[in-house]
Simulated assay, not measured.
Amino acid sequence: MAETLQFELVSPEKLLVSEPAEMVTVPGSEGDFGALPRHSPMIATLRPGIIDIYEGGNIRNRIFVAGGFAEVNEERCTVLAEEAVPVSELKAEDAAARLKAAEEALQAAETDQARAQAKRAHDVAVAMQAALSGGQPAAH
Score class of each variant (00 low, 15 high):
Ala2Leu: 06
Ala2Gly: 06
Glu3Phe: 05
Thr4Arg: 12
Leu5Ile: 05
Leu5Arg: 07
Gln6Phe: 02
Phe7Met: 02
Glu8Arg: 15
Ser11Ala: 10
Glu13Pro: 02
Glu19Arg: 15
Glu19Phe: 07
Ala21Gln: 11
Glu22Gly: 13
Glu22Pro: 05
Met23Glu: 12
Met23His: 00
Thr25Cys: 09
Thr25Pro: 08
Thr25Val: 13
Val26Met: 00
Pro27Gln: 05
Pro27Gly: 06
Gly28Thr: 11
Gly28Ala: 10
Glu30Ser: 14
Glu30Gly: 12
Glu30Val: 06
Gly31Asn: 04
Gly31Lys: 03
Asp32Gly: 10
Phe33Trp: 01
Phe33Gln: 03
Phe33Arg: 07
Pro37Cys: 01
Arg38Asp: 13
Ser40Thr: 11
Met42His: 00
Ile43Gly: 05
Ala44Tyr: 02
Thr45Arg: 15
Pro48Gly: 07
Gly49Glu: 03
Ile50Leu: 10
Ile51Asn: 07
Asp52Phe: 03
Ile53Phe: 07
Tyr54Ile: 10
Gly56Ile: 04
Gly56Tyr: 04
Gly56Asp: 08
Gly57Thr: 11
Asn58Tyr: 08
Ile59Trp: 03
Arg60Gly: 05
Asn61Lys: 15
Asn61Met: 10
Asn61Leu: 12
Phe64Ala: 03
Phe64Asp: 06
Phe64Gln: 02
Val65Phe: 05
Gly68Cys: 11
Ala70Asn: 07
Glu71Asn: 06
Glu71Gly: 12
Glu74Ser: 15
Glu74Thr: 14
Arg76Val: 12
Cys77Pro: 03
Val79Ile: 15
Val79Pro: 09
Ala81Tyr: 05
Glu83Ile: 12
Glu83His: 10
Ala84Met: 03
Val85Glu: 09
Pro86Ser: 00
Ser88Leu: 10
Asp94Val: 09
Ala95Trp: 01
Ala95His: 08
Leu99Gly: 03
Leu99Thr: 00
Lys100Thr: 11
Ala101Asp: 03
Glu103Val: 12
Ala105Gln: 05
Gln107Thr: 12
Ala108Glu: 08
Ala109Leu: 02
Thr111Cys: 09
Thr111Phe: 12
Asp112Ala: 13
Ala114Phe: 06
Ala116Tyr: 03
Ala116Glu: 08
Ala118Pro: 05
Lys119His: 11
Ala121Tyr: 02
Asp123Glu: 15
Val126Phe: 02
Ala127Lys: 02
Ala127Leu: 01
Ala130Arg: 09
Ala131Gly: 11
Ser133Met: 12
Ser133Arg: 07
Gly134Pro: 08
Gly135Glu: 14
Gly135Thr: 14
Gln136Lys: 11
Gln136Gly: 07
Pro137Val: 14
Ala139Arg: 15
His140Thr: 10
